[in-house]
Amino acid sequence: MSLRELINGEKRKIHKLDLNEIEKSNKNFYEAVNEEDYNLKVEAIKESILEIGLINPITVFKKENGKYEIISGHTRYNAVLQLSESGLIDSKIECIIQENFDEESHLKQIIESNIQRQKNEETNKIEFDFFEKEYEKLVQENRRPEGKKDDWIAKKLGISSRTVRRRRHHFNQDANDNQSNSITSNEVDMKKLIKKAIKILEKIRKNEDEIEREFNVDEINSMIELINILKNKVE
């Protein structure tokens, strides 16, 4: 048994694919979360590949267009790609091709394959929101998982049920704060627009004899009165 098989715990058929045959998944959000940390990780993998080779192959599935899309191993793929572009290794990468792949579960598999990695708050929220929606989807399809919702999400994320409840409260609080800030911003913008409109209409009224217009004085006065009512409601 090879070192790779000992590490992976099983013997799997490994294919060598050209890098040009492989496409990144647009569902993978991990590498974009913290660019500096991600680049450091890529560099560490590149050093390891040059020393002992790629220990853990990436996992892909074959698409209808004949290309292969990555399920897990985006960081390893980027490391191999950079080394290949530098002329340090050839343009092949070892892959495990997953058969009968369900594209609807693609994001789920990406998340599950990254459960153990270090994450920031943005990543935690994306994962949390995904499994919240996944649970509700199962309920709607009459496939409610056994046990409590928080316990199910906790198991999927590799955290405690208490942490699930704490994150939900935290994320909901952030959403409420953002909504409040958005409303406040909209109110400020509305006040500015109303004040600007009042000034324009008052200027038109004062210069009514000099300006060609479609509105008469009564119509302009009515518009000013309406805008003042709106202004008072905002304030």
Score class of each variant (00 low, 15 high):
Leu3His: 13
Glu5Pro: 01
Glu5Thr: 04
Asn8Trp: 14
Glu10Thr: 15
Arg12Val: 14
Lys13Cys: 07
Lys16Trp: 01
Lys16Gly: 03
Leu17Thr: 14
Asp18Asn: 13
Asn26Phe: 15
Asn28Ala: 07
Tyr30Lys: 00
Glu35Cys: 05
Glu35Gln: 05
Tyr38His: 05
Val42Met: 03
Ala44Arg: 11
Ile45Gly: 04
Lys46Thr: 12
Glu47Cys: 11
Ile49Arg: 01
Leu50Ala: 09
Glu51Ser: 14
Leu54Val: 08
Ile58Trp: 06
Ile58Lys: 04
Phe61Arg: 09
Lys62Ala: 04
Lys63Arg: 11
Asn65Ile: 08
Gly66Val: 00
Tyr68Ser: 07
Ile71Lys: 07
Ser72Gln: 13
Arg76Leu: 13
Asn78Ser: 03
Asn78Leu: 14
Leu81Thr: 10
Leu81Lys: 09
Gln82Trp: 07
Ser84Met: 10
Ser84Gly: 09
Glu85Asn: 13
Ser86Thr: 13
Gly87Lys: 02
Gly87Tyr: 05
Asp90Glu: 09
Asp90Leu: 03
Ser91Trp: 01
Lys92Ser: 00
Glu94Thr: 02
Cys95Pro: 12
Ile96Arg: 08
Phe101His: 00
Glu103Arg: 13
Glu104Arg: 08
Glu104Lys: 07
Ser105Gln: 15
Ser105Asn: 09
Lys108Ile: 12
Glu112Ala: 09
Ser113Thr: 00
Gln116Met: 10
Glu122Ala: 06
Ile126Glu: 00
Phe128Tyr: 14
Asp129Val: 02
Phe130Asn: 02
Glu132Ile: 12
Glu132Gln: 07
Lys133Cys: 01
Tyr135Leu: 02
Glu136Asn: 09
Val139Glu: 15
Gln140Leu: 08
Arg143Met: 06
Pro145Phe: 11
Glu146Pro: 11
Lys149Glu: 10
Asp151Arg: 01
Trp152His: 03
Leu157Ala: 01
Ile159Gln: 01
Thr163Asn: 00
Val164Pro: 00
Arg165Trp: 15
Arg168His: 12
Arg168Asp: 15
Phe171Gly: 06
Asn172Leu: 04
Asp174Tyr: 05
Asn176Asp: 12
Ser182Trp: 02
Asn186Met: 00
Lys192Val: 08
Leu193Thr: 04
Ile194Lys: 05
Lys195Cys: 08
Ala197Val: 01
Ile200Val: 15
Lys206Glu: 09
Lys206Ile: 02
Lys206Thr: 01
Asn207Ala: 00
Glu210Ile: 15
Arg213Met: 11
Asn216Leu: 00
Ile220Asn: 02
Ile224Asp: 07
Lys231Ile: 07
Glu235Ala: 09
